[in-house]
């Protein structure tokens, strides 16, 4: 059965790739973002890929304005005639040296990636539980799995997010809410442009395929690409004195 999906962050990167895959198989999409002109172009791109008659709608929403989240959920619900799936791919990123130079941006990054994403999820949780069931899929990161030198601040924001998503899944799975945490490694998007490819660098479409498979199966935690499950298992178990010495 086709999903009715609210997407936050579908204009770029992994979100764009997820939206294209969902559109191609006929799911109904509602895109939320800050720039309506940009959203309209993305909607047109998706329409070209959708089966005849399928619809995609857009409305304004901003993860930096938690006061508007009620409206965002309501607008999406109105446009879709109710939704059962939420995919959040929006987030902020900068390298550790850049973040250390710019505390104002660091504050924004921490607020958007953790506090506001969690608050948005809370709105969605209430909505989906009130409807009886639903799926919430959020993009976290392998950067949250261990405190590491190159991703101290960004990693901390994602560690908090991952912990929230795991707790949410445990607490509400039985009540009908499936929570999915996707942890990509390095992905070649606009967010990471200019950085050299580390090992296991992936394209957004590979991550999108993993995320959608997890939505379909209700898998609570997936790494993308899958090799990262093994890599992070190893890194999580490295002793602190090793982590202090190495550069990754």
């Amino acid at each position: 059965m086709a999903l009715n999906v609210l997407m936050v962050g579908a204009t770029k990167g992994i979100g764009r790739a997820v939206a294209r895959r969902l559109a191609a198989r006929g799911d109904r999409l509602h895109l939320v973002g800050r720039n309506l002109d940009d959203l309209a172009k993305c909607a047109e791109d998706l329409r070209a890929r959708m089966p005849a008659g399928a619809r995609v709608t857009i409305s304004h929403g901003d993860l930096e304005q938690p006061g508007t989240f009620d409206h965002v959920v309501q607008d999406a619900s109105d446009a879709l005639g109710g939704f059962d799936t939420v995919v959040i791919t929006a987030g902020l990123f900068a390298t550790q040296p850049d973040l250390e130079q710019d505390l104002a941006f660091t504050q924004r990054m921490l607020t958007v990636n953790f506090a506001n994403t969690v608050l948005f999820c809370e709105h969605v949780r209430r909505y989906l539980l009130a409807r009886g069931r639903g799926t919430l899929c959020v993009l976290s990161s392998v950067a949250g799995d261990r405190g590491r030198k190159p991703v101290v601040l960004y990693g901390a924001s994602k560690a908090g997010l991952s912990a929230y998503l795991e707790g949410l899944d445990h607490r509400y799975r039985a009540a009908g809410l499936t929570t999915i945490c996707v942890k990509p490694g390095f992905v070649r998007t606009g967010m990471t442009q200019g950085l050299p490819d580390p090992p296991f660098a992936a394209d957004p479409d590979e991550v999108a395929a993993v995320a959608i498979a997890a939505i379909d199966r209700g898998t609570p935690l997936v790494y993308a690409p899958g090799i990262w499950r093994l890599v992070m298992l190893l890194i999580r178990h490295l002793p602190r004195f090793v982590m202090r010495k190495v550069g990754f």
Binding site: K12, L63, G91, L92, L99, M191
Partner: peptide
């Protein structure tokens, strides 16, 4: 949605 703001993108790595 939110994107890189005023923070300069690190571009001097691949040459």
């Amino acid at each position: 949605m939110p994107q890189l703001g005023a923070v300069a993108v690190n571009t001097n790595t691949t040459h």
